[in-house]
Amino acid sequence: MNIFRLAGDMTHLFSVLVLLLKIHTIKSCAGVSLKTQELYALVFAARYLDIFTNYISLYNTVMKLIFLGSSFSIVWYMRYHKIVRRSYDKDQDTFRHYFLILPCLLLALLINEKFTFKEVMWTFSLYLEAVAILPQLVLLQRTRNIDNLTGQYVFLLGAYRALYILNWVYRYFTEPHFVHWITWVSGLVQTLLYADFFYYYFQSWKNNQKLHLPA
């Protein structure tokens, strides 16, 4: 464990807590994409298949349970909670996220480190996570007013993977033959997808204005 990875995990934890807090306290999911939340639930389900069979550490298991629990409960809130679901903007959240799942699955079947069920599912979760934010970014472009919590959620979600990239650089230089191209490339693509959001987020922060993305 290095500082970059710990910072990345904490940033990721904060992003899901910010979102859960928003939905649970103000009972609203305005501006939040259900599609992205469903993709993330799928990412964690595919990645943490061995949560009970491959014990690594208490920290690792607890964090996996938190990520699984939070992502599925956010999906539950947005789909079934009678108050929260009313604030879900399904007419705007129209990204066909099923078109993301299949290509990622096919790619995982073609490009992976080992052709086993667990490894292919793990690789699938990497590719899917890289594109899971797209429905949310599209929704932000459409809904003019981006409330602070949603903006912070997306920012933290992007920052966590950027910190993971620093973690991979650190591990590359400190651990012998630590080479994982698949993870590095998908992590880089994921972070680059946030590039323009980061730019506008920083601009709004610098000029102390409300965050708005150009149409």
Binding site: F67, H177, F178
Partner: peptide
């Protein structure tokens, strides 16, 4: 085992 090295990440 290199494979497990990466799997300790979240």
């Amino acid at each position: 085992k290199e494979e497990s090295v990466l799997k300790d990440e979240l």
